[in-house]
Amino acid sequence: MSAARIWQRFTPAERMARFVVFLVAGILIAWSLRTVEIIPEFLMDAPEQVADLFKRMWPVDFAYYERGVHAVLVETLHIATVGTILTLGIAIPVGIMAASNVCRVPVLNWLATFILVSSRSVNTLVWALLFVAVFGPGTLAGTVTIAVRSIGFVGKLFGEALEESASGPIEALRAAGAPWISVFLKGYWPQVSPAFWGIALFRWDINVRESSVIGLVGAGGIGMALDEALNLFHWDRVALILVCIFAVVVIAEVFVTHIRKRII
């Protein structure tokens, strides 16, 4: 009798939901593939063009490093670092405002969420365009771009870390009559500081990548040199700059992974 029973992993509603998701995804992709404007000649031509590109990039113009790349490379790292430090200063109060267990004023929670979402929704390059229009081309625009764009990321993760912290030490401090600042410094901060420094390092790693491209719209750093080399068709210099960016990004990632292991 009971052998006739059929076991199913999901309820009909769940199966229906999954089916709908797949169906909608399929329809959207089919629509995209049918209507996107791709010129087939360009696609056919691509391998030749790529081969040509690499031929022009070779040999890499390493002699140019001393003259035109080293200074902007260092500038890129400075933009990323100063921008990250600036972000930390802003993201801590915003993160505190966003954490509903630390800041119990709903209006401030909403305000913080708004700041975090708008910072993250607008892409780095778009922020860079905005700040170049405001501050004029140069490193100032780049640093502010990096700082503003990172607030969303650091503030969100820091706020989440605060919300997950254990309430025991906080209650103990409150019961002993500690003022708000002491509760934060001795109750919350020791619990979240490893996470916080981890987030900061991670963001610095991302910022090194991003600060290497914001120069394309005039916000300082190695991107400006890349833009110039591209416009002048100096492909051997483009290759050198790409190699430099690659090296710096890899070194930054190795550095961050190494330190994170020691912190956490």
């Binding site: 404007e37 010129i39 691509a46 590109l53 990548r209 491209v213 394309l216 960016i245």
Partner: peptide, 23 residues
């Protein structure tokens, strides 16, 4: 390692302007 923008520049050179480079 490379930011999407850098890929985008290279692909714009390789396959011309338009959505194909973006894809």
């Amino acid at each position: 390692s490379f930011h999407p923008v850098i890929f985008a520049i290279l692909f714009v050179k390789a396959v011309g302007f338009g959505p194909l480079a973006g894809i």
